[in-house]
Nucleic acid binder design. Sequence first.
DNA 1: CCCGCACA
DNA 2: TGTGCGGGG
Length: 341
Amino acid sequence: MGLDLKGLITKEKTTLESFASKVIAIDAYNTIYQFLSIIRGPDGMLLSDSQGRVTSHLSGLFYRNINFLSLGIKPVYVFDGKSPTLKAAEVERRRQIKKEATIRYEKALAEGNMEDVRKYAQQTTSMQDGMVEDAKKLLGLFGIPYIQAPSEGEATAAHLTKTGLAYASASQDYDSILFGAKKLVRNFTNSGRRKLPSRNTYIEIEPEIIDTSKVLSDLGVTPEQLVDIGILIGTDFNPDGFERIGPKTALKMIKEHGRLEDVPQIQDKLVSIPYDEIRKIFLNPQVAEVSEIKFGEPDYIGIVKYLSDERSFSRDRAESSLNRLQKSTIKRSHTLEQWFT
DNA sequence: CCCGCACA
DNA sequence: TGTGCGGGG
């Protein structure tokens, strides 16, 4: 579920174009997961190669990175390491949801209800062995750097924004704010209308940027207090939160009493929650120490070979998309030249 | 997610 | 030129 900070945070609409020449630390797991849930055939099945290996994540990464690079955006992907032990309950909760979705999926399939088939197929989405390696291989061929985080990827992504190596962290989850990312970008993709799964309605998806220091000053709280607010609402490390406490109440309590230990209404429940450990996860996380981030040139031939020879992509399609990228980078270098001549 | 096509 | 839809892998 993630952290429900919506309602407390002030966000601004933005565009992908405004991130030209900026380094953006992208939550790789979050991105791949989204591709796996969205990129599916009409029957709800994942795309796969001739050997039956899933390719939806590769398709998503291929097109999205072409987009980023065409616009001059400098993506760096951050991969999750080992989850903190405290996340076990949340991981188990998600596993259970997938298990139930699998049952519903099979039922819908038997009934021939294709709308439900798609919906439940999406909910069964899970990361399989090899997908991370696939993603790293493709990123490597693109010359796009990636970082292996020791623990939560969002913590390392946030750290990169603090050290100035990245301008912002891109993820759908609000956790990045608690990890102290200077800026968080949500919907870091081209804006446009998206069809909602299982509904015949469309929504407009637009990139939005959240400035953490603005969030803190607007709310009038410290980073430590924002973490306490998160714990009251419920984080991945205490997913149930506190009964009948949502974002509004949580803010009010912390503003009034300062910290969890001093909120009288919650003391009974608080003793059963390892709040101090959760605070440490957000405020003093394990992160990858990175001194520089190196970007390379795309290996166009290598990308086509990998995707078409090994992963059953259409050679023509891959080549024409890469041609677009090549043209746009040439165009950009010309416009840059004009600045210097 | 993306493309390509049919069709207004 | 824009939009909806089917298929991609």
